[in-house]
Design a protein around this nucleic acid. Structure first.
Lengths: 192, 192, 192, 192
DNA sequence: AATGAATGAGCCTTCATTCAT
DNA sequence: TATGAATGAAGGCTCATTCAT
């Protein structure tokens, strides 16, 4: 699998910490995962983690920043586009892709919302979500249409998290979720 | 709100523990809430908690059992009904109501999924969710329709959790979410 | 020496922690003394210390408060007396006695000044010392006389700390230091 | 003050380490100052410190040796002089000057006595102090006169440390302290 | 019905130090 | 003349839990 000779590990310890940490955080939750555990899996000492990251929180923050950059870029892009239906569809498409690419992180965020709220990145996540909704929704439309936009986003999440446990091919499921989500914003868009 | 004179508290300590515990668990998360904190808020000692509950987990379990009974009853009822659209609508309606009635618990479960998975009740929650989906969905329909059913459920959740932070009147929002969810299963139902 | 059967220790653990802690702090310094060490000497666990005190700092603070009360009382008393030479002599006399009574603490404070400065009590100590000087000195006298008053106080400290290592009978040394200190303030008092 | 361009720093790193270390040790205490902190202030790595000094203790020792040489020379000189009052006065004068010249170190030693005791130089300091007292005092005189000699030394210390926080011009204060100290040994000398 | 006192395990973090490069 | 990467030991502190009273 991954090379495990001490020489081969040189120079990429930081990356390895991020990988293992995310894996464990997603699997067991943030608070239930101790730095001891992460260190053991990497066959280094706890102190080595502190050479690369200032705190436990720092580890998840760094992973977060790496893996959510696409979302930031998506938002930046979308803010410059006209608020057309096609733009909204593209937003959902790219959002779905970004989630698929960083799926363990998104799973982590979904399942550790209480933790996220106390983390310094929690605020960022929240703001980002609101901005995204803002980009999808139609101002002054009926309440149900606002809900449909939020629902579209949550459908993508559901597609990633929940549905994967049930249905068959992940990619196929993701596409189906994307279709349903697109349907929802389409309804909302056309109503107004 | 609740009576706070020492005499008035006599005999209902168990209930008070459950109330405060749920409040704190929902607010700060399960692991971040210590028994010390709960005890302090109740102005009793930690040891007193152990008179009423065997473990920390026991507290949340007991709350869970009290507040999710309506869901169990809903499932029992639905399983005896014909799989008509009207039945499905009724399921959503009652599910939405149950969530509104025990909202701190549902918020807790949503925001502490990682924790729930390790708790003994986690399995129950999961099974219940699957059963609910089973009752809503149409077998052998296209994948998108299956997704729509799951999405309907998640829309109700979104209506409770996320939307409350944004829109105005909670009850109005809940109704809107219910309407969107009903729409979704209606589409799914009619397609087949 | 002290009773060491578990029964006999019941109920006075708090006191025992204070005693041993002060002893170790005075012997090895504050930072060099770990809670583990204190706990081991008491044959309890570290956690037991935390039942009785909120932090390590809390331990030394509580000892400090117990053992410096006489100084506070002395200051209160002195502030109500006329600023006569006799009053000043009495201040020195009682100060010397208070130090003798709580000598390990005073040794600790003298030898851990850098630490004291960071502790919350550091400020108190400093203020108290200034007040004491204020009570002894003669306003508007020549600078040398001000120095003599400070010097008198330091002579008492020297009598406690340094001289004990050298000369013979502690009590005799203390009396000698007191005499020299009294001489110093007498000179300062009469000059003006 | 000190040149800070990288080129200018070449070759005097050792000196810079000593300077910053002493500054921090005096400011925050020995144990509270970490090598990381020193390295950061110098904008080098911790490992660089180990190129110049074998251990943390080594740093303070080297500073100590540089700055206390005058005292050693003073003692050597005094031991060859007749035990006259004039000699004693000269001892105090030069001692006071040496302290003024290396004041951060002397402040450090005063405020970190507990630490000093564990350091290898602690013994040296103590021995030196005893020798100094020996040179000032009059053998076989009454105990109070012995105390006066010790008190004279402590007065100089007080003049450096404590009084600086209060009175105005440092140099003036130092002179006043020297005068009081001289008075004390004069009394002691003449009594016999 | 509840308290006082304590425990054992574990947590995050920091430190002085080392060594190959 | 220094750095990058890591270690071993320890530190202060918190937690869920227990039990005699």
């Amino acid at each position: 699998m991954s090379s495990s000779s001490p020489q081969a590990r040189r120079g990429n310890t930081r990356q390895r910490i991020q990988d293992i940490a995310l894996e464990l955080f997603a699997e067991q939750g943030y608070e239930k995962t101790s730095l001891r555990e992460i260190a053991e899996r990497l066959e280094v000492t706890k102190a080595a983690l502190y050479y690369h990251f200032k705190t436990k929180e720092d580890i998840i923050i760094s992973v977060f920043e790496d893996l959510t950059r696409p979302i930031d870029e998506l938002i930046e892009w979308a803010e410059q586009q006209p608020r057309t239906l096609e733009t909204k569809r593209e937003v959902l498409r790219r959002y779905s892709e970004a989630m698929a690419a960083g799926s363990p992180l998104y799973r982590f965020m979904q399942e550790n919302q209480a933790t996220m709220r106390e983390l310094s990145i929690g605020e960022t996540v929240k703001r980002r979500l609101f901005t995204l909704v803002e980009l999808l929704r139609t101002e002054d439309g009926p309440l149900t249409d606002q809900v449909r936009c939020v629902s579209a986003l949550f459908t993508l999440h559901a597609g990633m998290m929940f549905l994967q446990h049930v249905e068959g091919d992940p990619e196929e499921t993701r596409q189906a979720a994307l279709e349903v989500a697109t349907d929802l914003i389409t309804q909302a868009h056309q109503a107004s």
